[in-house]
């Protein structure tokens, strides 16, 4: 952990070497984010609700997913950009060091510009919470917290699985974007609004439903099942196969020419 924090601070210092670039990128992220935001706003000028979910309910869902995704972009950038690590041959160097590989990949890169997205996600979440009339209690607070955590965890798992994919082929990376970016865009809406096949897929294969659907039902008071409040914790089980997949892929690593 100490090692990770140290490399984080080194990345930050490295990025701050290019001050103007950092500020401009930071600002440009705000515009990118608001286009996503406006798409949802625009949608709701036509429709009052999507399958019973109102604007602010969808925004809450959206902000939770955006937060988890951006969190990983900042703190697990090395895993997100794992293909670059492989293509440039820098993964060799990690293998030469006496530390856990996943930890080292985490240490290898980070993108502090995306902090701006995390902040914006929290702002949108704040707006949504103000407009929603939530009858707060301890379980609702916990539920919200679990949703945020599980959102970070699920994207970490997906990034890791996508990184494992790089061991098998460094090309055709669009396939993995279907699951990272594509998954993110779908999960911005409560999974329940989709067709049954999708719901099953996003419950049992990539468990987005435990991040933003079942707990959301409890949080909004549409379900009284207390299990739903704790369902985000199931997402941790999703991590195991992702980690295994990564180590399995590592055995097939063939490096690149010198």
């Amino acid at each position: 952990m100490k090692l990770y924090l140290k490399s984080l601070s080194m990345h930050l210092r490295g990025e701050l070497e290019y001050r103007v670039n950092f500020i401009l990128s930071f600002l440009s992220q705000i515009f990118v984010f608001f286009t996503y935001y406006f798409i949802i706003l625009a949608l709701f000028t036509k429709f009052d609700h999507i399958k019973g979910f109102t604007l602010y309910e969808v925004l809450l869902c959206f902000s939770i997913i955006q937060f988890g995704f951006s969190f990983n972009e900042v703190f697990a950038r090395g895993i997100d950009k794992f293909d670059v690590l492989i293509i440039h041959g820098n993964f060799d160097r990690l293998l030469l060091r006496p530390k856990n590989i996943i930890l080292q990949v985490l240490c290898s890169d980070s993108d502090f510009v995306k902090v701006s997205r995390m902040i914006q996600a929290l702002i949108v979440m704040g707006i949504a919470l103000i407009h929603l009339e939530i009858s707060w209690n301890l379980f609702r607070i916990l539920c919200l917290l679990f949703m945020l955590i599980s959102s970070c965890v699920i994207f970490f798992g997906i990034f890791l699985a996508a990184a494992a994919y790089c061991f098998f082929t460094v090309q055709g990376l669009e396939v993995r974007n279907v699951f990272t970016d594509g998954g993110k865009h779908m999960a911005q809406y409560p999974i329940g609004v989709f067709q049954k096949g999708f719901v099953l897929f996003f419950t049992f294969v990539i468990p987005y439903a435990f991040v933003n659907y079942y707990p959301l039902l409890y949080f909004l008071g549409r379900s009284n099942s207390i299990y739903y409040a704790f369902s985000p914790l199931l997402v941790f089980f999703f991590l195991f196969p992702c980690i295994l997949l990564f180590y399995f892929g590592m055995r097939r690593y063939t490096s690149v020419g010198s």
Partner: peptide
């Protein structure tokens, strides 16, 4: 210890 003449292990900006 390993030195690759064609690849750097130093942090470029620091």
């Amino acid at each position: 210890g390993v030195v690759f003449g064609q690849r750097s292990q130093l942090w470029w900006d620091l």
